[in-house]
Design a binder for these strands. Structure first.
Lengths: 339, 339
DNA sequence: TTGTACGCGTTATCAG
DNA sequence: CTGATAACGCGTACAA
């Protein structure tokens, strides 16, 4: 068992409250007593019981994080940023996954709430998912910050990337490279992908190229089949068709890497036959076949700013705050796959 | 504010303890009362305050996880497995990073302990890091399971991969492909890499090839310089030398991917000029240049088993347990880089 | 079958 | 400057 305030009090012939105050440097305690208590505490390796502190104070110094998945590069980097920033702010974080299921998302929020978090960082799975639960949380004085999916309906701070402009830039780059028939590969039901599609469309329109819905291919992950398979099925007929693309714009990390792998398998020469560019945060972009040109999201920064904004809200309890939506700039890194 | 036991009690003209018992299905409460209470609780969305429960019961239903880093594929997958398994066991997890610093590792353990975790899952940074703190934890009845780094000195369950055999297999594969001059690229001070080196050596010895220390190149990350740079510096002279390698065995995920990228930059044709194989859990192995042959660790499984073993220890409080060290089989996936 | 009293470890209030 | 007391929300002997 570990030593408690009471133990110290008994040993030193003081009261528990005096010890408590001494340890928290209260002005009402004499320097002498403070020294005595602190030395004893240090010597016996006393650590206050957080649980009891939490119960008493109503705060937990913990922020909850709910994300769709944790095993992809973007999210791993995001988490890294969140971790770093919360350490700096002396917050602990509890991480839960929603696995892209609203039921799990709701459950995760509920679990975190029961645990007594001081704030929530959420990568929501859809545009108004868990809205009721989130509003309840806010009503209970627990602030929420939305990360990545800035299109979510909740009224609060939101931090994401400028998906529109990132996609616009990438598409424009392909156009500047002389590509005429650019396909857009994306996934169904992923919120951020809509902005990316708009960016793609905007670049085409600006170049005077009519937007052709047939050039937009949306992978449906809800089928339960692997993304790899689905992309293959989508790409095969394309290669044989009269309207064979000369460039592919891939809207997500996974699609981008997989597409590159599939094209390599098919011995399609990238970028000579087909150029490829996409959103990706893989640290291996250089080692891909060929080195991948990519729109890179500032994932770590996103996590850090998310924590920062949450911190603001947690400090400014009850004050009226003007909520903002922050769109961080993406970075277009040109390597070989798009040249 | 949220509704408490007392509120329900007052509203229903019962005592708090009756309500508490009713909700936990105590045999001493009448079916009638139970129904009444439960319905009221459900209707008013009552959730017991975990903090209070924890304080009372001394358990928190939380397991702490401390790992070196969270932004690499292996760890992300490991975390995913841990998450999955702890959800199944109705445990929440708190994740902290040690960033490969023993001071941070100790601190993380301390923070988790103060938070009142029921068990700890640790990927230790060195062979006897934080041993004192871990022993204290165990002495306080909080079990610890070591993950990945099974060479750690603590007496407890340990779950890792069979690094020796994985490396042995990979090296043997290179030998079977006729490679004569296989170099080993590794990092300094990473515990698991030692076993991998032994596996490499064993395969060479078995083939009657004398082990040559000059063929082992250890990257020193403590310099603060990037792994990319360091590998470049190591590889450049090699390529020009009389003893130019015909194969590289890379001991870690990062080294493997980076090496592939560097060789591509240098226009060294893999595997014709130099074959490459290594430990890697990247999901993009197919898309690498060329498709990467790799020793894959069962990271998710490792996480799940870690939680399982921890669960065993948490249940069997005080009982004598025979600690075991589990070495999970790796998988050798041959693609193009080693052919 | 239900209620009372107490304690988990801490902090806050108030009295001395 | 220090100490007694109450309280946070819950669970549990024990009493009724």
């Amino acid at each position: 068992m570990r030593i408690t305030l009471k133990d110290i009090a008994k040993e030193l012939n003081l009261s528990a409250s005096t010890v408590s105050k001494a340890l928290s440097d209260s002005y009402e305690i004499s320097a002498e007593t403070k020294k005595l208590v602190k030395e004893y505490a240090a010597k016996h390796n006393f650590r206050p019981n957080k649980i009891a502190q939490n119960l008493k104070t109503g705060r937990s110094n913990t922020i909850g994080v709910v994300m769709c998945s944790i095993s992809n590069n973007f999210v791993a980097q995001l988490l890294d940023g969140i971790q770093t920033a919360s350490e700096a702010g002396h917050y602990d974080i509890i991480i839960m996954q929603s696995r892209n299921l609203e039921s799990l998302e709701k459950q995760a929020i509920e679990v975190l709430r029961m645990r007594g978090i001081d704030g929530l960082l959420l990568v929501p799975m859809a545009s108004n998912s868990s809205e009721k639960e989130l509003k309840e949380l806010q009503a209970a004085g627990i602030p929420v910050v939305i990360v990545d999916r800035t299109f979510h309906s909740l009224d609060t701070h939101k931090v994401g990337a400028n998906n529109f402009y990132g996609a616009y830039q990438a598409t424009k780059h392909l156009l500047e490279r002389g590509k005429k028939n650019i396909y857009h590969l994306t996934v169904k039901g992923l919120g951020v992908s809509e902005e990316r599609l708009k960016g793609y469309n905007a670049a085409l329109e600006e170049a005077g190229i009519p937007v052709n819905p047939a050039q937009v291919i949306a992978i449906d992950q809800s089928t339960g089949r692997s993304v790899e398979e689905l992309i293959k099925e989508a790409i095969h007929p394309l290669l044989a068709s009269a309207t064979r693309p000369d460039a592919l714009f891939c809207a997500t990390d996974e699609i981008t890497s997989r597409t590159l792998g599939i094209l390599a398998d098919l011995a399609v020469v990238v970028p000579q036959e087909i150029a490829v560019i996409g959103f990706s945060n893989t640290p291996n972009a250089n080692a891909l076949n060929p080195a991948l040109s990519a729109v890179v999201q500032p994932a770590r920064l996103m996590g850090e700013i998310g924590v920062l904004k949450l911190n603001e809200l947690m400090k400014s309890k009850n004050k009226e705050v003007e909520f903002e939506t922050i769109a961080l700039a993406t970075e277009l890194v040109i390597r070989k796959s798009s040249l």
